[in-house]
Design a protein around this nucleic acid. Structure first.
Lengths: 254, 254
DNA sequence: TGCTGTCCATTGGTCTGACCGTACCCGGAT
DNA sequence: ATCCGGGTACGGTCAGACCAATGGACAGCA
């Protein structure tokens, strides 16, 4: 090479073709040229548009689907639809990451505690009357379900998510929501071991709402700390195995 | 249907075959029978094991790769390798979710603030001498870089992540790290508008470390609040467009 | 009119077999 | 010892085909 060190020749093409398609769709999403509910062209049409085979298009769609960006439906009028925002996938990613990282349930619960305690001042400051009414309504139906013996962890999770929503910051809500997805699963067994939890928990929920209504930041924070602390203790107790054993999806088919 | 409402008939077979493979691999991961660094069998061998075609196996691998669970390398001795835990993918998912949800940069920054302020007490309580030394070292190299005019947002992000690591809770560290991935990108332009940020920021970093060393929780929290608050202000100012404009990946190829 | 069953077009899901590019390894030439 | 050059084991892509699921159009029946 006598031409010197200048890079006259640049790499001609790198990466996967399917990745290019993924990036392109993501770009459209970012630019707002694709909105939730929109339907992408059919696989066969995308083949023509991008000039690639159907396999490649399908791999791109699979990546987008795994990222929770599109929802794929079969049959006539099916196709890839841009999803409404839903942190569920993010929670799954979190769960996967946890098992890969050997995170303990206690670790995750502590992180969750940081977030849920940290938002209390925001909740107290910003919660509207409608927020408080909703929260009390959740408490009431929780108590009824409790007496009927059908109080579920989902109901508790709903309450915590609704609290987060009262910050009127969608990012905060999403953060809490993503915690409550996989975490819920790890706690389901705990509930079996300690059915009383629902009772105390429901009372504490109501107390928290009243503290928020009174504008008592410190009191609300303390209540929440105790409330989550109980969960943390249970998690730590039942975590005989060190890593969070997330149970997701149904039993294996086939 | 006279047989009543009981569901005698259950769906015979649902879902995708590739999804079954994904679940199966994920299960192995959860059970610890696949560890980071391990190599999955080659695509062609997996075909035989699962009794499906290569296309199906590839789609499954694509999903696993998109979830950040495996890393696929080409060439001889290539294949799918279980990744070491890395919240980068999670950060990307967060970024995608943000654009889908019309989250503003201010929203995200506020959520980040909640986390980074919430962990300060943990940092003060648990930081070891090595942690503090590392942090001060980062501050020093930051100052040097500053004087040399090559202080980058990455260096600031490194500091914040190192602070989170001082909680000795990997979940917390991962949370902060996932914030600093996509967020960093949105702030890069801000740095151009306000090159002085690095200067003040670096000073505040050092002050924070000293407060932590002194065990002054309140002081450390306040310093961090001011520090992040400055960022929040800049983010809000530059957010002429309401949604976070995340720039990820290189320019489109092809 | 209104319901029901059938047919059919659309669309994703999977298979088969082939070919290409890439990356590593190893042996031969220098 | 070092530097090439095939051999080989991979993933990446393509083409065409068939199956399964779904929803709508339409005819037949009450």
């Amino acid at each position: 090479m006598t031409a010197g060190d200048i890079d006259l020749f640049s790499p001609v093409s790198v990466g996967r073709v399917s990745q290019v398609i993924v990036d392109q769709v993501r770009l459209l999403l970012r630019q707002g040229r694709l909105l939730p509910g929109d339907r992408l062209p059919s696989e066969r049409e995308l083949c023509g548009r991008f000039g690639v085979s159907r396999v490649t298009v399908r791999e791109a769609l699979r990546v987008l689907e795994a990222g929770g960006l599109v929802d794929i439906r079969v049959g006539a009028r099916g196709g890839a639809f841009v999803t409404s925002p839903d942190p569920t996938k993010l929670g799954e990613g979190l769960a996967d990451l946890m098992v890969l990282s050997q995170l303990t349930a206690a670790n995750v619960t502590e992180a969750r505690t940081v977030v849920e305690l940290g938002i209390v001042p925001m909740v107290v400051e910003r919660a509207t009357a409608a927020d408080l009414d909703d929260l009390e309504s959740l408490c009431r139906s929780g108590r009824e379900a409790l007496e009927a013996g059908r109080y579920t962890m989902e109901m508790s999770a709903d309450f915590h998510v609704r609290v987060a929503a009262s910050t009127h910051n969608p990012a905060v809500e999403m953060l809490v929501r993503s915690f409550h997805g996989p975490l819920l699963m790890s706690l389901k067994e705990a509930k079996v071991a300690e059915p009383l939890m629902g009772h105390l928990g429901a009372e504490e929920h109501l107390g928290f709402v009243q503290a928020v209504r009174a504008g008592a930041v410190a009191a609300a924070t303390d209540l929440m700390r105790v409330h989550i602390g109980r969960t943390a203790t249970r998690v730590r107790d039942q975590a005989g195995k060190a890593t969070l054993d997330v149970v997701r999806g149904g039993p294996n088919r086939i």
